[in-house]
Design a binder for these strands. Sequence first.
DNA 1: CTGAAAGCGCTTACAG
DNA 2: CTGAAAGCGCTTACAG
Lengths: 351, 351
Amino acid sequence: MRSEDLAKLIGVSRSTITRVINNYPDIPQATREKVWKAIEKYNYAPNASARKLAGAKNKMIAIVVLDVKSDAPHHLKTTDDTLIHNNPFFAPVINAVSDQANKLNYYVIISIVYSREDLKKVESIFNQKMIEGAIFVGTQEEENEFIFKLIKQGYKIAMIDTSAVYSKEHNAIYINPDNYEGSAKAVNHLIELGHENIGIITGSLNKLSAKERLDGFKETLSYNGLKLSEDHIFQGDFTEDSGYEGIKYIFNASNMPTAIFISNDTMAIGAYKAITELGLTIPDDISIVGFDNSFIAPYLTPPLTTIDISFADIAKRATTLLINSIEAKEQNGIVEKINATLINRKSCKRI
Amino acid sequence: MRSEDLAKLIGVSRSTITRVINNYPDIPQATREKVWKAIEKYNYAPNASARKLAGAKNKMIAIVVLDVKSDAPHHLKTTDDTLIHNNPFFAPVINAVSDQANKLNYYVIISIVYSREDLKKVESIFNQKMIEGAIFVGTQEEENEFIFKLIKQGYKIAMIDTSAVYSKEHNAIYINPDNYEGSAKAVNHLIELGHENIGIITGSLNKLSAKERLDGFKETLSYNGLKLSEDHIFQGDFTEDSGYEGIKYIFNASNMPTAIFISNDTMAIGAYKAITELGLTIPDDISIVGFDNSFIAPYLTPPLTTIDISFADIAKRATTLLINSIEAKEQNGIVEKINATLINRKSCKRI
DNA sequence: CTGAAAGCGCTTACAG
DNA sequence: CTGAAAGCGCTTACAG
């Protein structure tokens, strides 16, 4: 059914149908009701392509998830040996974006990017005018040029879990976890439990999140008058293996720490293995705090005390701001951090 | 840039541009090349809405995930207290659909349905002519009417992880895991280890998957000349709690089994708890096989031997068949089952 | 082989 | 307050 058909059925012009649907002012209540009743009755819905072509917004955004293979804690194989995305952020982010967009009457196209080649396909989504804007997840510095070009073309862009540094003039929406606060909470927890000799396994320090987590760690330590000896810092790379190595390295130190802050849960898994191999037990011999509150954290033995950053909250906020920005027709640079909270489980002991 | 602009630039008509892009025959190679070169050079992409409006397919499908809250093993809360979808199938299914669609040059809209209300929104995606077809995940019998209506309207539909019974005349594409085969593999594994007295905790028997798993279990047992006593069957409902209760129930039997097949991993978690509470250990006192190979299975103590059904494979196959069906313009009913495989870990012992 | 023209179903000035 | 008409950027018969 076309608007014209519906119009004839109730004796108005199709302009009137459009006006009612799009909530134009100056339409008598009676007309409004007549039209809406007919819309319901005949289950009429305006053709999305026709609307968009005629100049209306199509209420479509994309969620673009950048390849996070290297960060994924576990790999599953599909039949043709491509990795599937098993990053713990994936499900909550997709879910929250979809739910929030839906709530605001928007539709979302999903796109997962594994390569430069794939980025071209994403570009074509914009070029074909399929969407008004997009949320990018996990971009690195390298993608900035691509993204800023899109913004210049008038598209609205939100970025979450970006490791690229924010630049005000580019007018993107940046929503990130408060990594600094998260580390601070981890350290404060340990200090409250009486720990004074605390080590750290960092993430890849070319990533913003790893840097912020390290900063929060160091500054909270020094704020509390505690020292950090060089051989209690191990630079990991967010992988399970580097967590394992980190423990082996730190436990070689002359003066062993009583607690270790590990910059993500994936590395904590490796750390647990190394600690078990050394014949030590958590938390009796060593207290551990992780970061991310990944889905496996409660299933480790002992359950891992860790920092929760709600990726659902981040994604939801990004979606809201993106859609606001689309409706407002103007993009203003926005930077927000989402709170981190400590999830207290069984991997720390009072000393 | 519009096709007309591009056409003028290289001295052809816009019909020619269209014909080259859409691979019409009878165009001289020279023209083809000239047009493609210009397309690349000016980064031209046809407007998706205009194409669709003019009658072309828009290469857009939807993945519709039905509310699986009740089945979800773990719940996370978003700020406004709505549950987020933490079902273990979610990520691999979305990922595989997106990847496969992308490979076939299709785009995918994601929609998560929590209520009847939400289903109306899904319907409007069709009514607005946004998509050519969709993959439904986790539909129940109740949604059948809705889905068959769509098929009658000419949309192509694939269904995965459906608990509704297949009906040939409705011409949908059904891709499901081979639950029967999975159970058979679980039982055979236990039999090979010497077990002859095997119990089962079933899922909700109003679900097809639970029924199939039970059938595979029973028939493999009897095929091997083994008996199943009534008090070794507990009817669970796929939740952790029912796994816990199942153990308590079965261990009350006069003649305790040496092994239990548990119809999903979530219930196995509850079973592990109950067994620990009873002061027994896995696998020394009792062998356990789960089903689903969920992401926590390897992190349980001991790591859970379970049946893997690749939801990525299922989703990928469904995507391929759906798109074939769209391109072929005709939908034929298709039913396929995807193989299940045993993942051997540490929860079973030879006796 | 290729161009001119109709038409897809809307939205939006333009009139009245 | 409301209708008639132009126009959005394509695709597809229709001619030639």
